[in-house]
Structures are given as structure tokens and as C-alpha cells.
């Protein structure tokens, strides 16, 4: 049985304001859902709800066809606005820690391969504090393929990336979907990637009274 993430009638309230309500969608294996819409329509809030930060107020969120009891968060990669990097550690140490912590320890060779996919292989022993903003983002992105998880929740993954790196990101997202992964991403930039589904958050957002 294939895995499917289905959301029904999700409601998000923040600080007394309803950000969105009645939000429903399904994402199956090999599918990508693009979250569109202007700022403040709840793209980040939705991704955070999916990752499991904060309890769901109303609506249901289910993962059908999953063969064990793991939560969505435990099966997902979440890449938010922050990169979750330690600047005092080297590029390799940063990745190797997350691989260990997420339960899939990686050898130096694997780490180098993943870094190469984002053109960072030559900086492996550098301190992460010496990287530029774009390089830090690429380092955070190489975590996605280092630890294999079926669901990717990406919030503006292309922030700070140059055109060449955006292509590498699109390629990684493509590989993930072709391998049967679920992808939910928000982006303002056209990555040259065809998403199976699109959700315009501007349409479900509550208009301010």
C-alpha cells in the first residue's frame, strides 16, 4: 500500500486571528505539492503544523498506508527559515551529527557525496562559520538526502541560493519525488520544477474583516 498524507478541514489561528480555515489536500507518493500565495497567508504555519510543532486545533491530519507508528514529524524533513547549523563545527561535523541524531549514521564518504550534490564537497573540513549565506543554505539542504525520510517539508528552500544552486535544489527535489517521496514546499521562485499539485493559500486564507 502506498503512503498518502491527507489533511481535512485544517484551521490555523495565530494570536486570535484565523490564518486559514477549511484547508484540505492530499499528497501521495511521488507527488509534490506547491504552496503558493502572498506573505501572511499561512504557508509557514501549515508546514509547521505538518511537522508537528503545536497541536492541531481542528481538522484531521492523517498518514495512510504507513506501516509503523511513527508520527509525520518523525518521517519528515523540515527545512524552515533557519538552517540548524552550528557555526563552531565543521561542515562535515554538522552533517555527521544530524545523521547520528536522526538515527542513520553516515560515513565520511557518504557525507562527501551528499555535499558534492550541492557543490560543497571541497569545503568539507571548513568551519561552517566561514560559509556564505548561500553555502549555509546548501549545507542545510544536503541534510535532506543524507538522512532518508519519505516526507520533505520545505519552507522557501531557495532563499539565498544563486541560479546554479537553485538548479541543484530542483534536481534534488526531482530525485526525491522519483524515488517515491512526498514533497510539500512553499516558494516564490520558479524552480523550473513541475509540481503535481498546487495550493493557493491566498484562496483559503480568511479575509480580514
Amino acid at each position: 500500500m502506498t503512503m498518502q498524507l491527507s489533511a481535512k478541514n485544517l484551521v490555523c489561528r495565530r494570536g486570535g486571528r484565523t490564518v486559514f480555515s477549511g484547508l484540505s489536500f492530499t499528497v501521495g507518493q511521488g507527488e509534490g505539492l506547491l504552496l503558493e500565495g502572498p506573505n501572511g497567508t499561512g504557508k509557514t504555519s501549515l508546514l509547521r503544523i505538518l511537522a508537528g510543532f503545536g497541536a492541531l486545533e481542528t481538522g484531521s491530519l492523517e498518514l495512510d498506508g504507513a506501516d509503523d507508528e511513527l508520527t509525520i514529524g518523525q518521517r519528515a524533513h523540515y527545512l524552515g527559515h533557519q538552517n540548524a547549523l552550528k557555526l563552531a563545527l565543521s561542515v562535515e561535523e554538522n552533517l555527521s551529527f544530524w545523521a547520528d541524531f536522526m538515527g542513520q549514521p553516515a560515513t565520511a564518504n557518504t557525507i562527501e557525496e551528499r555535499l558534492d550534490a550541492f557543490n560543497l564537497g571541497h569545503l568539507m573540513s571548513y568551519s561552517a562559520g566561514l560559509l556564505s549565506a548561500g553555502q549555509k543554505r546548501r549545507l542545510a539542504l544536503s541534510r535532506l538526502e543524507l538522512v532518508s525520510r519519505p516526507i520533505w517539508l520545505l519552507d522557501e528552500p531557495s532563499v539565498g541560493l544563486d541560479a546554479a544552486s537553485c538548479k541543484l535544489l530542483a534536481a534534488a527535489m526531482m530525485r526525491h519525488m522519483e524515488a517515491g517521496g512526498l514533497l510539500i514546499a512553499s516558494t516564490h521562485l520558479d524552480l523550473g520544477l513541475t509540481f503535481t499539485k498546487k495550493l493557493n493559500m491566498g484562496d483559503v486564507a480568511e479575509r480580514a474583516p
Binding site: G52, Q74, A84, K86
Partner: peptide
């Protein structure tokens, strides 16, 4: 505080630990 500021704590909250 450092893990909260750089987003590491969010990833730790997700598990598996």
C-alpha cells in the same frame, strides 16, 4: 538558547529521539 536560535531545537522536537 543556541539550539533555539538556529532552529536545531525544532529538528530535535521532531524526533526520532
Amino acid at each position: 538558547a543556541p539550539d533555539y536560535e538556529d532552529g536545531s531545537l525544532e529538528l530535535m522536537t521532531m524526533g526520532p529521539m
